[in-house]
């Protein structure tokens, strides 16, 4: 058939395909910058820390000053140093958890979505079970029974309870990819399943994998901080949660020692927000419907454009923008009249 006729549907979507690389998204860039900052701190934190986090001094419960930037604890420990040292623990645990959990999620989610049928039924049931069983209480009882858990065990347990959401998202995305032309073609060409998954499917899941990774990193930071706050993880390993554990146990909250508890929570919030921002960027990349129209609200408002479904904005531009056409149409109008006279009937 003629190529003109083959295409059945006309897309209403714009032909703009420029903003596809999610890393170019402003939100993602800001998020990456903040997260990168904490990564660096995690790397060099223990070396640049002005004091040892455990070192007690006579300067007890002092508010922030030039000597102690974020003040001191009840026993005169430097809180700024505690946070600097603690960043490493948070980063190590959360990133390794993210990697392991993403790996499990990809293995189960992609297999499930790609194979379909019975395998899919079983694997997605398995995924949903892990999703529904509350993770934190499970971690708490395991840690509580284990005692003396090392970093490795912590990472493993958080990963094992945190992969399910990612697997679910990856499964559905794989399912939609499976029916696309290029995957069908690869299968029709007799490519092995392995090759199809690794060369056709996985490259197209990059964005989802990234968002799964970020999601699990976020969740594991929350879990780690919570676990060390409630003292399930030995408080001798410094992390932001440990700072809060000591703050709570020393009554910092009732005595108004805000510099003790506020910064640690804000660190968690800042990292969490940075990860959320990166994920927003990825979401907009994956789901174009969420994408903003490339202009901020204030600027649109100035031009009186209110983009919404069902009421296309009308902004009459100056006639000069319409190229030469207005001139021509007036010419052709006069011609129309003329030719009407000439061509009376047919």
């Amino acid at each position: 058939m003629a190529q003109v006729a083959v295409q059945a549907t006309e897309t209403l979507k714009p032909a703009v395909r420029k903003h596809f690389v999610f890393l170019r998204n402003t939100k993602s860039i800001v998020g990456l910058a903040i997260f990168g900052f904490f990564l660096v701190v995690g790397l060099i934190g223990p070396w640049i820390a002005p004091y040892s986090p455990d070192k007690v001094s006579t300067a007890a419960s002092e508010p922030p000053s030039a000597i102690h930037w974020l003040g001191t604890t009840q026993t005169g420990q430097d809180i700024f140093s505690q946070l600097l040292v603690g960043t490493r623990g948070v980063m190590v645990v959360s990133i390794s958890t993210g990697i392991i959990a993403t790996f499990i999620a990809a293995a189960i989610g992609v297999t499930s979505g790609f194979l379909g049928g019975m395998w899919d039924e079983m694997l997605s049931m398995f995924t949903n079970i892990f999703l529904v069983i509350p993770g934190l209480p499970l971690i708490i009882i395991i840690m509580g029974m284990m005692k003396e858990a090392g970093v490795g065990a912590i990472v493993l347990i958080i990963s094992l309870t945190g992969w399910a959401w990612g697997a679910r998202v990856l499964r559905s995305q794989t399912m939609s990819l499976r029916s696309r032309d290029f995957v069908e073609a690869s299968r029709a060409n007799g490519e092995t399943r392995f090759r199809t998954i690794f060369f056709e499917i996985l490259p197209n899941l990059t964005a989802i994998l990234a968002s799964t990774f970020i999601g699990t990193v976020t969740a594991s930071i929350m879990s780690l901080v919570t676990l060390s706050y409630i003292g399930v993880i030995p408080p001798s390993d410094w992390s932001w949660g440990t700072v809060l554990y000591w703050a709570q146990n020393s009554g910092a909250f009732t005595q108004g020692l805000w510099w003790w508890y506020a910064p640690a929570g804000l660190c968690v919030a800042l990292v969490g927000m940075s990860l959320a921002l990166i994920n927003f960027g990825i979401d907009e990349f994956v789901n174009p419907r969420l994408r903003n129209t490339g202009m901020n609200a204030a600027e649109l408002k100035k031009r009186k454009i209110y983009p919404r479904i069902g009421f296309t904005p009308v902004v009459q531009k100056a006639a000069s923008k319409s190229r030469l056409k207005t001139v021509h149409s007036s010419v052709s109008n006069s011609r129309l009249v003329a030719s009407e006279r000439n061509n009376d009937g047919k």
Binding site: V4, Q7, A8, T9, E10, T11, L12, P14, A15, T293, G294, I305, P307, R308, I309, G310, F311, T312, P313, V314, V315, Q316, K317, A319, K321, S322
Partner: peptide, 26 residues
């Protein structure tokens, strides 16, 4: 017309049902 020639755009714009980022400029 072919796909993407604007035939749907024309009627949706004429009824102001064109979704964002559609904008009627004249």
């Amino acid at each position: 017309g072919e796909s993407g020639c604007g035939k749907s755009t024309l009627v949706y714009a004429a009824t102001r049902l064109l979704p964002p980022p559609g904008l009627i400029t004249s």
